[in-house]
Amino acid sequence: MENVKNFLNLFVDYLQIERNCSQYTTVNYATDIKEFYVFMNEEGIGELRDITYQDIRLYLTKLHQKEFARTYISRKISSLRSYFKFLLREKYLQENPFSLVSLPKKEQRIPNFFYEDDLNELFSLSDLSTPLGQRDQALLELLYATGIRVSECCDIRLQDLDMYLDTVLVNGKGKKQRYVPFGSFAHEKLKLYLEDGRITLLNKQNNHHDMLFVNHRGGPLTTRGVRHVLNELIKKTSKTLHIHPHMFRHTFATHLLNGGADLRSVQELLGHAHLSSTQVYTHVSKEHLRKSYLSHHPRA
């Protein structure tokens, strides 16, 4: 097989420099392309220019046989389509066989979200007399108050937080920045954490950095660390929830729309590039209304 590593390196540079993609997006693209190279090896296809539409159909058939989700397969098609388009631009290929492939129709899955009783119980669990309890409570309040992604939350630095205006500067996908407000509950818990718990955690290992959220050793809190925090909290509740960090984002959007917020405002707060990404939460709201109707109307 040709020296495909050079092509992939060039493509990664293109994603990072020209398209300004995040590290997360770039890694996903590279992973999808490497997996396609494995398929090429298995099928004895020596060069990228030898790929035909029939080869792609076989590749997609194998993905479907493994029962991958449609969203997962769509991502792989998008990654490979962009890669072959790039090779076409660089005049290595004469045509892009992936341009003939349509994306699988998206499944209309309603995002999971917390009901108010679930949230109230979660918010009552942290021991505010301890540094980690103060951190956990500040984390929960900020995630729910802003609807930011967990990766965005872990990237917040002290200088991004404006405690006077109660806003946070968020670095979103594609390195796009946005200001997101937060309310009095989040302000109160952040203030306690910043003035007490965070300082104590940093001093444990004589750690000094400007990341807002820190782990038990005083280092920056990672997305994996956030998942661990939430899993530990849910163990203390009476709920049998399967919790994941993105549920706070879903809950933020759902509760805003249920409360009467307009779709465009929610789109801005979430940092969605397209309104269609936000519209999924209108389905959540409608489902919530439907369940309320069925539960309470005497002739439902």
Results as ranks from 00 to 15, higher is better:
Glu195Arg: 12
Glu195Met: 12
Asp196Tyr: 10
Asp196Ala: 07
Gly197His: 02
Gly197Glu: 05
Ile199Met: 05
Ile199Glu: 12
Ile199His: 10
Ile199Thr: 09
Thr200Gln: 12
Thr200Pro: 05
Thr200Phe: 08
Thr200Leu: 10
Leu202Tyr: 11
Lys204Ser: 02
Lys204Trp: 04
Lys204Cys: 00
Asn206Tyr: 09
Asn206Ala: 13
Asn207Ile: 12
Asn207Tyr: 12
His209Leu: 09
Asp210Pro: 01
Met211Ala: 13
Met211Leu: 10
Leu212Phe: 04
Phe213Val: 06
Val214Leu: 04
Val214Arg: 01
Val214Cys: 04
Asn215Ala: 10
Asn215Thr: 13
Asn215Arg: 13
His216Leu: 15
His216Trp: 13
Arg217Gln: 08
Arg217Pro: 02
Gly218His: 00
Gly218Leu: 02
Gly218Gln: 01
Gly219Ile: 01
Gly219Phe: 06
Pro220Trp: 10
Pro220Asp: 07
Pro220Thr: 10
Thr222Gly: 07
Thr222Tyr: 07
Thr222Val: 02
Thr222Leu: 04
Thr223Glu: 13
Thr223Ser: 12
Arg224Leu: 06
Arg224Ala: 11
Val226Lys: 11
Val226His: 09
Arg227Asn: 05
Val229Met: 06
Leu230His: 01
Leu230Phe: 02
Leu230Tyr: 03
Leu230Ala: 03
Asn231Lys: 14
Glu232Thr: 03
Glu232Ser: 04
Leu233Ser: 08
Leu233Lys: 14
Ile234Val: 15
Ile234Arg: 14
Lys236Ala: 13
Lys236Glu: 15
Lys236Asn: 14
Lys236Asp: 09
Thr237Tyr: 04
Thr237His: 02
Thr237Pro: 07
Lys239Thr: 06
Thr240Leu: 05
Thr240Trp: 01
